[in-house]
Design a protein around this nucleic acid. Sequence first.
DNA 1: CATGAATGAGACTTCATTCAT
DNA 2: CATGAATGAAGTCTCATTCAT
Lengths: 217, 217, 217, 217
Amino acid sequence: MTIQVPSNVKDPDKVRQRRAQIIRAAVQLFAEKGFHKTTTREIAQASGLSTGAVYEYVASKEDILYLVCQAIHAEMERKLMDSLAQSGRAADRLRNAVEAFFRVIDTMQEDILLIYQQSKALPPEQLRAVLADEVRITGIFEQILRAGLADGSLSPDPEAIPLLAHDIVVCGEMWAFRRWALRGMDLEQFMRVQTQMLLQACGCSLESGGGAVHHGG
Amino acid sequence: MTIQVPSNVKDPDKVRQRRAQIIRAAVQLFAEKGFHKTTTREIAQASGLSTGAVYEYVASKEDILYLVCQAIHAEMERKLMDSLAQSGRAADRLRNAVEAFFRVIDTMQEDILLIYQQSKALPPEQLRAVLADEVRITGIFEQILRAGLADGSLSPDPEAIPLLAHDIVVCGEMWAFRRWALRGMDLEQFMRVQTQMLLQACGCSLESGGGAVHHGG
Amino acid sequence: MTIQVPSNVKDPDKVRQRRAQIIRAAVQLFAEKGFHKTTTREIAQASGLSTGAVYEYVASKEDILYLVCQAIHAEMERKLMDSLAQSGRAADRLRNAVEAFFRVIDTMQEDILLIYQQSKALPPEQLRAVLADEVRITGIFEQILRAGLADGSLSPDPEAIPLLAHDIVVCGEMWAFRRWALRGMDLEQFMRVQTQMLLQACGCSLESGGGAVHHGG
Amino acid sequence: MTIQVPSNVKDPDKVRQRRAQIIRAAVQLFAEKGFHKTTTREIAQASGLSTGAVYEYVASKEDILYLVCQAIHAEMERKLMDSLAQSGRAADRLRNAVEAFFRVIDTMQEDILLIYQQSKALPPEQLRAVLADEVRITGIFEQILRAGLADGSLSPDPEAIPLLAHDIVVCGEMWAFRRWALRGMDLEQFMRVQTQMLLQACGCSLESGGGAVHHGG
DNA sequence: CATGAATGAGACTTCATTCAT
DNA sequence: CATGAATGAAGTCTCATTCAT
């Protein structure tokens, strides 16, 4: 589900390097002004290439948006993977993964917002590929939930597992896309509340989080 | 926090009527193609007005987007308000409100998606007004949570109340903006899982919902 | 050489009155913003008529400009005629006419500038009519010059009479159309220098003007 | 007091060359139809560029008008300077300059008319720059007059010098902007009368001009 | 490969004029 | 006669993309 972006240039290293320049510039511009209000000229200029050169590495402006979304997802995934514990009880790995995920989101706020707001501008096929990336990220949590069901450390409704995984992702990403509403909190507060809610929903047995734990009155 | 959209036409009834036409057409087009790929001519044509006539009721294309967002939020609020119980324990009113909210979202999927994807195209001031609408909707849930704290039927962490309200809104709205990921579920399933999670997070004492209740293993 | 501006309205008094309103508003607007940047709506509004009503008294925007030019010339001529001595030596009448003319110009600066800057926007036929008005005004001075040739009080080159008349008009009107360059002078200074130059050019015998008379060194 | 017109194109030679094309086309069109009735497309077409190409060399239609005015004034000044005697009595240099100026006007009638009729369409700042050009041209005559005062070959009222310079300019330029009234004369006749009047007003001692010299009375 | 000038379709908006009420 | 909403042609300007150098 990864779509090839064609390039006139043969040397793959050069392509990688130039596209990195383009992506770096475009991420910033798209986040700031949005896809449609950003011109290819601006992207070229900001990436240190000429107008024409950009089109040696990309076939259309939409390709750039696709590369940007891809790069963001790749970075998210990489960062997330890096801090995932590979062993232990699923419940602990979940708590760990959620925290890692939230911290990744915090460092990539603008990027996540960018995907939420601009991916609609992608052509259908590329949009599908981007959504597939999100499915893969969500899948990370799904897998842990299933592992928890298996090892007994979590007790989610089996049918609800996909949705719970989405809840984790969405309740984390809102730190980015509802930023305007959450100015009053700091990340730790946010994480405490969200983690508490999400883990409880997953039937996590051990409530060792820092926040006050509320037992229904 | 409501911004005036100027019109050349004086008769307020006519303005209302024509703007309704414009909004109806624009909602559809924006949802389908996005704000930037929709032309003013298309909007005019789809609303049965001439190009020039549209500009008798609106000063710019962005005004149309603002009217659209406003209309969507107004409809959401109206529908939500209509089905809100005015009395009873806060816990019951919350459950009721969440269900009502989710059903509203289900009927307004495209509209909510539209706001998520297109509001970035608004000029700053109008964007602020649209966000203020979302704040007001979120406030509905905040108030119930506070009432629950007061009448003892809910026990949210007082500091977490604003965030919990946002969780309710976001965990509902994902039915719209993650539609592509939730094709496998039906609304009732979705509501059961989300309601369960959210109410529990709010410290709702009586778990009378239909879903399986998970007590941490 | 006066072109009829058609009106749908039959009652000539009403036409006169309404056109006066239109002209009053248009003069101001044209002087301020120019013909092309003034909209018919603005003219209607400023004259207290509805958009449609204006077109009951005028067939086109250009008609309004024509009416404006006509009105300005008529006022100039009226004011000038009012203060023209009817008898006496031509030389005296000339001096008197030049002074009167200059004072008229001073009170009608914007109007004269308007004609200089906007008459190009007139349709050919109406432009011709406006130029004919200017010819008529120039003719006033021509006649006095010829009278002076006849009564011996002036001695212009007979062939130069038309040009000298234009010189009088232009050297007066520059008080309006070179206003930006003459900020440093007052009207009296200006009149003294110009009158001196013009009368001398017309071979005026009696140099009774207030200014110092310079005999070539 | 020269305003920079921005261009996307970096190569100054190309900018000069393309702008020359644009100016050539625009002068003709503006003179013929006026600024507002000329479309940017017509300018592009007449200058052999595409619509978009024009906007690589200019930021707005008004910029074109500004370039046109600038170019006209530059050409006037250049032509005038070329034929100015650098030495001799100021009185002779004045006569010489006036003649040169009048001949320049004769060759540039449409251009001068263009400035009179269209400069009102300029944005304020650019209008100021254009008027500054006219001030500079007028200044040429002012300087000669002052020199004449110094070398005794002219005896203008010192306070009247600026106005006399304007008289020279205006009494020359009327050959362009009153062309419709002067069809009956030829340039030589015109020059004779005007030169006579103007030099006399400047207190020029030696009346060696070709025209009949009239001594008052 | 790189450059950047050129293209031209098309976007938004304005506004003189009309005409039903 | 008066009103003012409606029309729609036309204008200015933008910008993704191409291609000669």
